[in-house]
């Protein structure tokens, strides 16, 4: 036996041509269905478009008013002019007012879904918690529960989040996400849990995503891999897409922040606490990494 024999033996294993053709047919049949955009996303996109148009129009109107002085009522005889008692709008107020009055129930487009470009999201994130400074490895959590490390622990205590699903590393159960190429970007456990919230707006809940390295206890390493940052981002996108499809919510807000923890409780909004893979650059000695996604809701 030599290397070439092994290679020849392996390379002689091929998928039957007939099966390839059948596979092409199956893939072609599946492709359009799987690529169809969920209705909710279409509606959200439409709402975003209308809102943008509305804001643009309001802005244009405000600017126009700014350069065209309104004559006093006594000079116009109040015919075809403004309703008595109203004052000309200031440009800023008009814009702000429009944003507030046109957006109820459709706040999604006004809020950042990904906050990579600016580290100060408008209203989704209520608190930023740079938990792990990366200075030492001593505060590495041993489980996801220990990731709670917000600025004011009392705040969390007062909320009483209930953990609904939780990943178990190495088992593929619950909401554990194997980071390898993102194929486990969601799990049935998480999906089922999300389905509980379909159409509900009477409960606060959020999803948290923890990217965390863990030691592979049995040495098999089958569920764990290192994750380059670009793939990490792609995985987050995948998760987000899945939640859009599953959760039937007005909005799914994800906050992705390098090496920082965002705590995002908000009614009818998914928040996420995300550690980017680059976080682990601070801990080069840790062998593997994994994703944990946990869904929490607020106990009433």
């Amino acid at each position: 036996m030599n290397d070439q024999n092994v290679k020849d033996a392996l390379m002689s294993v091929r998928l039957d041509e007939e099966k390839k053709e059948a596979m092409k047919g199956a893939l072609l049949a599946a492709a359009p269905v799987r690529q169809r955009m969920p209705v909710r996303r279409v509606l959200t996109a439409a709402a975003a478009f209308l809102l943008i148009i509305g804001l643009g129009f309001a802005g244009y109107k405000a600017l126009t008013k700014d350069v065209t002085p309104t004559l006093p009522p006594e000079n116009t005889g109040a015919v075809g002019g403004q309703v008595e008692g109203t004052e000309p709008d200031k440009p800023e107020e008009t814009t702000a007012g429009t944003a507030e009055t046109e957006a109820p129930g459709t706040e999604a487009p006004t809020e950042p879904s990904l906050v990579n470009e600016v580290n100060q999201p408008v209203s989704v994130v209520t608190e930023q918690n740079p938990v792990f400074s990366g200075e030492t490895g001593t505060d590495i959590p041993t489980n996801v529960g220990n990731l709670w490390n917000i600025t004011d622990p009392n705040e969390l205590e007062s909320i009483h989040w209930r953990e609904l699903v939780r990943g178990e590393p190495g088992t593929g159960s619950g909401s554990y996400l194997a980071p390898k190429a993102g194929t486990h970007a969601y799990s049935t456990g998480l999906t089922r849990a999300l389905e509980q919230y379909a159409g509900r707006d009477d409960v606060n809940y959020y999803v948290r995503i923890d990217v965390i390295r863990y030691t592979d206890p049995d040495g098999t390493g089958t569920d764990c891999n290192t994750l380059p940052p670009d793939e990490s981002l792609r995985l987050y996108e995948e998760i987000r897409e899945r939640m859009y499809e599953t959760a039937a919510l007005e909005e799914v807000s994800f906050v992705i922040e390098q090496t920082a923890l965002w705590y995002v409780p908000q009614s009818t909004t998914f928040g996420a606490m995300v550690y980017d893979a680059s976080f682990f650059e601070h801990f080069p000695d840790l062998p593997d990494c994994g994703f944990f996604v946990s869904l929490y809701d607020e106990l009433s």
Binding site: G172, A178, K180, A181, T183, H184, T222, D223, N225
Partner: peptide, 12 residues
């Protein structure tokens, strides 16, 4: 990598 993951799923 995806194929390896899919295989891991199937093994489970």
């Amino acid at each position: 990598r995806v194929a390896l993951n899919v295989c891991a799923d199937r093994l489970r």
